[in-house]
């Protein structure tokens, strides 16, 4: 009888562990695909020869362009550059109709956060990959995951559940992550440094 008691306890424990480590984290995110598939690798390959800054530009005014608008893509993509279905759809539904693509932004920070690329790129000399990983060499756009409760994208929240290597790019871009990097580099920080 005693064994049975412990067994029941263990089953409950195991069920919770399974749920807590696998089922819940999976169910916590709503997954959606980008409206159009896009290969960064093709664009940064030698054949095309673009660099990150060619499309994700930082203006002299200090404003980072973020995801390029249609006007950046349209000059090359007035005609289909390849035979993929996504390419055809991009031309027909967006370029031809002059409609902006509603990209899902992986690293979109919430409304109360201020972040400027300019000091991080130009003054701190950070590389794109340090925060965004090898995104620039991927063949397809990852599935976009958004937390159902907090509504933050998973790139902001981080992919792993236990933060063993907090400096890895996919460990997230939350306040602690920004703060840690500022601390490590001895950069001044206070509320208004990152909040608006």
């Amino acid at each position: 009888m005693k064994n049975r008691a412990w067994l029941t306890f263990a089953v409950g424990l195991l069920a919770a562990l399974g749920g807590g480590w696998f089922a819940v984290p999976w169910a916590m995110y709503r997954r959606s695909e980008q409206p159009v598939q896009f290969s960064h690798r093709v664009h940064t390959s030698e054949a095309v020869g673009l660099s990150c800054q060619d499309c994700h530009a930082l203006s002299d005014g200090g404003k980072f362009g973020g995801i390029p608008r249609l006007e950046t893509c349209a000059p090359c993509h007035a005609e289909p550059q390849g035979k993929s279905a996504d390419e055809k759809r991009f031309i027909n539904e967006y370029v031809a109709k002059n409609r902006e693509v509603q990209w899902l932004v992986y690293a979109r920070q919430p409304e109360n956060v201020y972040f400027s690329h300019a000091p991080h790129i130009r003054l701190a000399g950070l590389k794109c990959e340090q925060c965004h990983g090898q995104h620039g060499t991927t063949d397809r756009l990852r599935t976009f995951e958004r937390n159902r409760i907090s509504t933050y994208p998973r790139d902001v929240e981080g992919y792993s559940l236990v933060r063993l290597q907090p400096s890895r790019w996919n460990e997230g871009m939350k306040m602690d992550d920004c703060s840690r990097c500022h601390h490590e580099r001895g950069v001044e920080e206070s509320c208004l440094t990152c909040h608006k």
């Binding site: 306890f9 089953v11 409950g12 424990l13 807590g20 819940v24």
Partner: peptide
């Protein structure tokens, strides 16, 4: 009750809550 107790202890050991 035992199952629930096990579940509660287990849940504490996961990141979910």
């Amino acid at each position: 009750l035992r199952f629930t107790a096990g579940g509660a202890v287990g849940a504490m050991m996961t990141p979910a809550p």
